[in-house]
Design a protein around this nucleic acid. Structure first.
Lengths: 139, 139
DNA sequence: ATGACTGCAAAGACTTTGCATCTTT
DNA sequence: AAAGATGCAAAGTCTTTGCAGTCAT
C-alpha cells in the first residue's frame, strides 16, 4: 500500500530550480536549466517529478500557456498576469480572492470548490513597448 | 490586405453547436456532435473555425482542461467552475470580477490587462455523490 | 474566375509510459 | 536485496498545416 519516497539528487535539483525562479517555468525550461549541471538528466524525469510535486502540493500549475504547462513554486494564494504576446507570467501577490468567496460560491451553486484562481491577460510592459505582436493576441 | 469572409454551411453549424450547448465543448466534442448531420466534416475544419471564431471574439477559450482546450459561446463577463474529477465546466453568471479591478491592477503593476478570468476548482455535484476519483485530483 | 473553405493525411508539439538500469535504504 | 528513481526511446494525445479539390461570390 504505502510507497516509500527516496532521496534523489535530481528531484532535489528540480524542486530547487522551480523555487529559485519567478518565471513560472515549463518542464522544458527546467530541463534546459539543469542540463549544464546534470548532463544525463532526462526530460521524462522532469515531467515525472513535476507530477510528483504537484500531487503533494509542493508546487502548483498555473495552467497551459501557449501550449506548455507552467508551474509555480509558490503555493500561497495569489494571482497571475499572463502576457498574451510573449507568454510571460507575473505574480500579483497583493491580489488574491478571499477564501470566503470560494465557500460562498460553493454554497450558492452546490459544488465543492476547494481552490480559486484569478488570472489577468494582456500585454506585459516589455511587449507594450515593443508592440511586437504579429497576429491577433491569443485570447 | 483584406481577406473576404465567405459563407460556409459547416462554419455556421460549428458556431451553432457551440452556442447551443452549455457544456463548454472541446474541438472533439463539436466534431462528434456534428458528424451525424455532416458526415464529411473534418476535425481540421473544426479547429480552423474555432480559431477563426476566437480571433473575432465570437467565442472564447476557457483554457485547457484535462488536456483539451475548451470553448465558451458566451462572451459576456462571467466565471467558471471546473471539476477536477470529470472535467465538466459550469457557468457562474453571477460571479464576475469588475472591470475596475482589471484597470486598477494594470495601473498598479504597469501592464495592460484587457481581460480577467476567475475560475473555481473542486468537485461538481455529480462527482461529490459518486466520490469517484481514483487518484489524487489534478490540481 | 477568383480565392475562401474544406477533407485528408502528414507533421508538429507536448506529455506520458514501458523497460532495463542505476541508486537509495 | 528490495523497491524507488532514472534514462532512453517509443508511443500517445491534441493540434496545426500543406495541398489539392470544392464551393461561394
Amino acid at each position: 500500500m504505502y510507497r516509500a519516497i527516496r532521496y534523489s539528487k535530481k528531484r532535489e535539483a528540480i524542486l530547487a530550480a522551480i523555487r529559485g525562479t519567478s518565471c513560472h517555468p515549463s518542464a522544458e525550461w527546467v530541463y534546459q536549466q539543469l542540463r549544464p549541471l546534470h548532463p544525463d538528466l532526462s526530460l521524462g524525469t522532469v515531467y515525472r517529478n513535476l507530477a510528483f510535486f504537484r500531487a503533494r502540493g509542493l508546487i502548483q500549475s498555473v495552467g497551459v500557456v501557449q501550449g506548455q504547462e507552467r508551474f509555480d513554486g509558490i503555493t500561497a494564494s495569489h494571482s497571475h498576469f499572463i502576457c498574451n504576446c510573449c507568454g510571460s507570467i507575473l505574480d500579483l501577490p497583493d491580489i488574491h480572492p478571499e477564501a470566503s468567496l470560494t465557500r460562498a460560491v460553493s454554497r450558492q451553486y452546490g459544488f465543492a470548490a476547494e481552490r480559486c484562481e484569478l488570472n489577468f491577460y494582456g500585454l506585459c510592459p516589455k511587449c507594450m513597448d515593443q508592440q511586437n505582436f504579429k497576429e491577433e493576441p491569443l485570447s
